[in-house]
């Protein structure tokens, strides 16, 4: 059976992890490579780096981090944040990333998805979609959830799949940071609409939320950050819980 994936997400700023694990005796707790290695050894099915560097110059640092991580971590690595061009994508994949996650760049020019998936293969193109509920329907936001694009979410998801995305990373901006659980409504709607896998993101606070994300949200993978970093529970805790509830996970 195919397993439900659990993916920890690490925010990387100017080459350092911010909001990372703060409970283990890592030699250097701000080192993304160390943190990725820790998660990989402790049950993560994939690793996600989100580059939140503000300047273009500092974003270059992610390349060397990806190179170092790929030499130490042997599970899939997705890198997102600040990707503007096909050239950016190529550099990240060359450095050892397995997938890239694009968001605003796809909204600016949807053809980026088509070109990138034809050139590099759909399997390495994840499209991140940030949504917010307005008057009973979901709208796509860009630039880290700050800009309303006015685009209807389900329509956008359909288009993204058509253009060749291999996977969707769906984040509910209403739920992100609230610890009240995933937005199950938009999640299941997206999952039913699409034939490509959907990664749920935004809102995890309790271990039960993972279960709901799979059962009610029909997500194929679940992404979380702070609950893991602050050791509210571990990835293995989540996996044991899911397994007990008859959801297939890799243990």
């Amino acid at each position: 059976m195919l397993k439900t994936r659990i993916i920890p997400c690490l925010d990387v700023k100017d080459g350092r992890v911010v909001k990372g694990i703060n409970f283990v005796d890592l030699i250097d707790a701000g080192d993304p490579v160390e943190q990725a290695k820790f998660y990989s050894e402790n049950g993560a099915d994939e690793i996600c780096f989100l580059d939140i560097s503000a300047s273009l110059e500092n974003r270059e640092t992610i390349i060397s981090i990806v190179e170092k991580t790929a030499a130490e971590v042997f599970i899939p690595l997705t890198v997102g944040g600040g990707i503007r061009s096909i050239n950016n994508i190529q550099n990240l994949l060359k450095a050892g990333a397995d997938k890239v996650s694009i968001n605003s760049a796809a909204l600016n020019d949807p053809n980026v998805i088509k070109i990138a998936s034809q050139y590099f293969g759909s399997q390495c193109i994840v499209v991140a979609v940030d949504v917010k509920k307005n008057n009973n329907h979901w709208t796509v936001y860009s630039h880290g959830g700050t800009k309303n694009t006015g685009i209807e979410a389900i329509q956008w998801l359909r288009k993204v799949e058509e253009l060749g995305a291999g996977e969707i990373l769906l984040t509910s901006m209403d739920k992100d940071g609230t610890k009240s659980g995933f937005d199950l409504e938009v999640l299941s709607l997206a999952s039913k609409t699409l034939s490509i896998p959907v990664i749920a993101s935004g809102g995890v606070g309790k271990i039960e939320h993972f279960y709901e994300g799979v059962i009610k949200g029909q997500a194929n993978a679940l992404l979380a950050a702070s609950v893991f970093h602050f050791n509210e529970f571990s990835i293995m805790d989540v996996k044991h819980y899911l397994k007990q509830k008859n959801i297939e996970v890799r243990i």
Binding site: M1, L2, K3, T4, R5, D45, S122, Q123, G166, E167, S195, I196, P197, N220, A221, R250
Partner: peptide, 10 residues
């Protein structure tokens, strides 16, 4: 089933 077959399997 979702396509591609993506993830960990036995």
């Amino acid at each position: 089933l979702k396509m591609p077959h993506m993830g960990w399997n036995t």
